[in-house]
Amino acid sequence: MSEARDYLEMSYHSIQCFTNDGKLDANELGKIVAIAEKDGVIDSNEIRVLTSIISKIKPHEVDAAMQQRLADISKKIAKV
């Protein structure tokens, strides 16, 4: 079985989101997470990419929706 390449799609999508308006919103982050989950498993490469993407979010950009999305992602990653 070949290695999943979803993490590359996630990276590409995040670049598109950040270059669009310079930030990432909860909806955009949700779409990136959906890419990771589409095969039913969030693997180590996808976690690495998610962690990198999240690290680029500036604290002043975190609204209630983003805070909830980050909490959800944290729970999902903790299960892996």
Rank of each mutant, 00 (worst) to 15 (best):
D21G: 08
H13Q: 10
S52V: 13
D39W: 08
H60P: 10
T19C: 14
E28V: 02
M10C: 11
Q16C: 13
N45E: 11
V33K: 09
T51D: 13
V80N: 04
S11H: 09
G22F: 05
E46A: 14
I42N: 00
L8I: 09
C17A: 13
D25I: 03
V33H: 07
Q68F: 00
N20S: 06
M66Q: 00
E3T: 15
S55M: 08
Q68T: 02
R5A: 05
L8P: 05
A36G: 05
M1A: 15
E46F: 11
V33M: 13
I73V: 01
C17K: 02
M10D: 14
E9K: 13
N45F: 12
G22H: 10
K58D: 04
F18M: 15
I73A: 04
K31E: 12
R5M: 10
S55W: 06
R5K: 04
R5L: 08
H60G: 12
P59H: 08
Q67D: 06
L29E: 00
M10W: 12
V49W: 02
A71K: 00
S55N: 09
F18P: 10
R5S: 05
V33T: 01
K56T: 10
S55K: 06
Q16Y: 14
Q68A: 08
R48T: 02
F18D: 05
T19P: 02
I35F: 13
P59N: 08
H13P: 07
A64C: 08
D25N: 01
Q67S: 05
I77A: 03
D43H: 09
D43L: 13
L24D: 03
G30W: 01
E28A: 09
I73S: 01
D72I: 14
R69S: 05
Q67R: 00
N45G: 10
N27W: 05
L50E: 05
S2I: 12
N27P: 09
L50S: 05
R48V: 12
S11T: 09
L24T: 02
E46R: 10
I32S: 05
D21N: 07
